[in-house]
Design a protein around this nucleic acid. Sequence first.
DNA 1: CGATTCCCCTGATAGC
DNA 2: TGCTATCAGGGGAATC
Length: 304
Amino acid sequence: MPELPEVETTVNDLNQKVRNRTFVDVWTDFEKMIKKPPGFEKFKRDIQGKTILKVRRRAKNILFDLSQDMVLLVHQKLTGHFLYGRWKFEGGIWRSELKGNLAAPINRFIHLVFFLDNGDQIALSDLRKFAKAELWSAKELEGSKEMRELGCEPMEEEFTFEKFKECLLSRRGKIKQILMDQNAIAGIGNIYSDEILWKAKVHPCSRLDSLDDEQLKAIYKSAKSILASAIKLRGTTVLSNVEEYRGVSGGRGGYQARLKVYRRDGLSCPVCGGKVERLKMNGRSWHFCPKCQKLKGKGCAKSK
DNA sequence: CGATTCCCCTGATAGC
DNA sequence: TGCTATCAGGGGAATC
């Protein structure tokens, strides 16, 4: 699912394809995707004629900077992903145009399609229908609570170890939860926080205030290196039959082959050979190696 | 005010 | 075969 590396890959892909393109029209079969009132009709009216100046990322949000100081914000949530190409709506399904003799790839989960002035399209596929798209004025978005409160960007150069500690300041509780808190550090979700903590040899239930400088440094370094290599490999496309994250040309990411603990419960830890465990916390699955990631102090209360 | 729970969705899978 | 229950999960809102 799209976390920082997947969003970053999508943004890079989109920048290569759609800079200076102008929105001509937009289609949806799921108007609730446009969360911001008054809804789809105004969204459609307002986006027509706007030119894409640049695409960028903030936390897990994709931001299209548009002409006339407008911004298109898309959050992909769990299964949302953009596809770029030319699609045809036929028999209630979007099908991409034939390439040679290949059968036309179809995608039953496309719920939003932007039509561009060169005849190409940007489609948003989203099996779970959790994604959202909104149109903001740049000023309004900048001042909005959801943007203002976002935490540090871990891939920025200024993200030093000192900065990292500052970002965690005043937070308390379990380190895994803090790593996933978008208002502390932005862009990290369930997959990469599992992997970062494994590499740092820190138990996900460790309280922040129980960690010493050495452990914090390990987390900081792991975060930087894991996110960087995941970006290099174009993100993670989780091994499952569920239609999930893809690059905008439809290709899978490559990082899933590097996962050490995420969704590997029952398998052996590549470092110590011990069994990877899964822990249910707040309706989420946490994965870790109990042998490599020793817990100091109070643990997780059992939860269903 | 902080911490927890619910809810939005739907496809794959397991159990009967 | 076909039904039902369970799981996956980001983040905002409601509730404790």
